[in-house]
Design a protein around this nucleic acid. Sequence first.
DNA 1: TAGCTAACGTACTAGTTCGTACATTAGTGT
DNA 2: ACACTAATGTACGAACTAGTACGTTAGCTA
Lengths: 221, 221
Amino acid sequence: MTSVEEPARPGGRIRDAVRTQAEILDVATQEFARAGFAGARVDEIAARTRTTKRMIYYYFGGKEQLFTAVLERAYAVIREAEQGLDVEHLDPVAAIRRLAEVTFDHHEQHPDFIRLVSIENIHEAVHIAASEKLGKISSPALDVIRRILEQGQKSGLFTADVDAVDLHAMISAFCFFRVANRHTFGALFGRDLIDPAQREHYRAMLGDMVIAYLTAERAAD
Amino acid sequence: MTSVEEPARPGGRIRDAVRTQAEILDVATQEFARAGFAGARVDEIAARTRTTKRMIYYYFGGKEQLFTAVLERAYAVIREAEQGLDVEHLDPVAAIRRLAEVTFDHHEQHPDFIRLVSIENIHEAVHIAASEKLGKISSPALDVIRRILEQGQKSGLFTADVDAVDLHAMISAFCFFRVANRHTFGALFGRDLIDPAQREHYRAMLGDMVIAYLTAERAAD
DNA sequence: TAGCTAACGTACTAGTTCGTACATTAGTGT
DNA sequence: ACACTAATGTACGAACTAGTACGTTAGCTA
């Protein structure tokens, strides 16, 4: 994240293509996450940067492409978090827990990312489909899961042959829902899933759930 | 759902307040689910009904209140499904499985509901908060979960003292994610979570996950 | 059958919003 | 010092969009 707060140089126009683009992306992320794609206002984004609307079109081409760029950057962040995952030295159970916690922590710390993904789903992922950066590269977490699963299954710790993508979905579902549906869930059931006091409770619950699933005695079928 | 296809009576104007309102709600549900709150067009909704925009304002007051009415009706449907739940005769494990399956089936069969809830979360649940119908009544599923949990814990089948709301969140998370994030997940990982051929697979996975969690040997803490 | 009102239609407007034509300048290479 | 281009700013317009003023009519009731 590039800070928007910097010494404003009055009078003299500063030229910094990289910073200008980063600033637009920062503000656009907030604005899209706040109001959705259609609800976001290009004028509002421009007003909250130190540059003008003209530059948004100059650098990104249009509202649609700007949203795509915002998405690309948001996904880059979580991939980075997953990349930093170092679980080779852990036993499978601990490794899976660690992996789940990384997703848990990332989602909690990046509610804007969650919102952007929700919004992108409303639009049936057309921007991801149109993006060259996204789509191609699959999540680093998947490779990690694959290795841990293999290890766990070989050692007999993990009972069933679970698919890596499915396990990733299971973990993501829990973490995503907690952030994405915070408001409706809170309004309907009077419980704030993001309450800091309950953070460790839900973090443990996720780990317990996944481990229980992986190590349960499976009925022969 | 009221069918929009009916014998159009040319010339003679038909007056039916109930049907007009239902038709507006049907079309509005589709339109809001399609494009989000800001992306939805009141003119488009009007055009796809047999009535006019004037009637939307006549009956609902405005776009915002129309969305609230749409939400209210969508929540009524799932509550009805939960109400029909009859699990008193089942053992706790089967009962929990059945309960999870009802949520699984409902969410799969009502992608528009999922979208509306996602959209409502983007808007921080302001419409639920503003609604008198919603908010007050809590989910019937919760009462069912409470009873099953109590039964399961007394009999020693269920190991830990799990909270009913938390369990509901766990089940909802899985079912909701599968539908809500179908598109981004599919685009990124090349797997369609809604593929009919995989339906039973995921349905079983959900049940296995929840039961494994509930019956796992919990480490003393 | 007269009259009353809920139900409905038409036409319009005020304000918004994405996008662009045109003008300008900072900074770099030579 | 000069010229060239990437980067930037201003001002504007065409299209859209939520909402409404005003007029009409179906159908019930007394």
